[in-house]
């Protein structure tokens, strides 16, 4: 049982950088300038403006996830049916952009949107940008950034799918469409669930993308939290917002785990 010592560095790490910061968040949420109070917290909770931003963030995150799923599933399905060597090459092409820093990529996109492509949707061309245009631009970049995180778990699940099950289904009278909906789709649920989790959670907490793409004029929940700490520092407001977001992510993860009825029990949370 000596092997448990190997876990100690990680436990220390977890305490220092996860547990302690959480304690700080809770401390600042209910403590304004050294006095314990619920006032600021309550103010934040009843601030309709903040809830609106959260709603927009959820919508953007859901939109990103949905688009990633719709784009990623066919890609993963096609890749999984290819010869391993070909699929490996194509998916490598797919993941090469991920080797580049996330912030750099986002900067590149902001330049592309601003100068390289015609401003079809009034996306961000500084002065003329509309809020719809900015939303589309943010969605576009989020999808670009997170698509590989959807494809990878889907590809893993689909490529492990026993092909004889598809034959069995066709043998029992199912055509291609029925086979897909009755066999392939249900069996790829674990991949869908981890794909959704891997896209939805970072998308709802995203703040670099809206900050850079929207030229500071577009705010998602992450940016609101950022503002609360940096623009006019009110730590209790920022902390409360953080807690709200945390609870939200927690709930969404629990919901996803409910769908992933993997009997092995190894769920994400």
């Amino acid at each position: 049982m000596k092997r448990k010592y190997f876990a100690y560095p990680y436990i220390v790490w977890m305490i220092l950088f996860i547990v302690v910061p959480m304690i700080f968040i809770f401390y600042y949420a209910f403590n304004v300038n050294g006095t314990w109070t619920f006032r600021k917290c309550w103010e934040t909770l009843t601030d309709v403006q903040k809830w609106r931003v959260l709603l927009v963030s959820v919508e953007i995150a859901l939109g990103t996830t949905a688009i990633c799923l719709l784009l990623g599933y066919p890609i993963a399905y096609i890749l999984s049916n290819m010869k391993k060597s070909v699929a490996g090459f194509i998916s490598a092409l797919f993941f090469v952009p991920m080797w580049m820093n996330f912030v750099l990529r986002t900067y590149a996109w902001s330049a592309i949107i601003e100068y390289a492509i015609p401003d079809l949707f009034n996306m961000t061309r500084s002065m003329t940008a509309t809020s719809t245009g900015r939303t589309i631009a943010v969605l576009l970049v989020l999808v670009y950034d997170f698509l590989p995180f959807m494809v990878l778990p889907l590809y893993n699940t689909l490529s492990k799918l026993d092909k004889s099950l598809l034959e069995a289904s066709r043998d029992l009278g199912a055509n291609g469409k029925t086979t897909f909906f009755r066999v392939v789709l249900p069996l790829s649920i674990p991949g869908i669930v981890s794909g959704i989790t891997m896209v939805f959670v970072p998308a709802i907490t995203a703040f670099t993308v809206p900050a850079l793409i929207g030229n500071g004029n577009y705010s998602l929940y992450g940016n609101v939290i950022d503002d609360a700490f940096k623009i006019n520092p009110e730590y209790s407001i920022g902390s409360t917002l953080s807690i709200i977001l945390l609870v939200f992510v927690l709930i969404s993860t629990l919901i996803m785990n409910h769908f992933d009825t993997d009997k092995e029990g190894g769920s994400i949370l």
Partner: peptide
């Protein structure tokens, strides 16, 4: 195509649907 034949198969490794 196989789904239109009045023939059914018992597969070598059974190929039962795990879900």
């Amino acid at each position: 195509p196989p789904h239109k034949r009045e023939i059914n198969t018992v597969f070598q490794k059974y190929a039962l649907f795990p879900h």
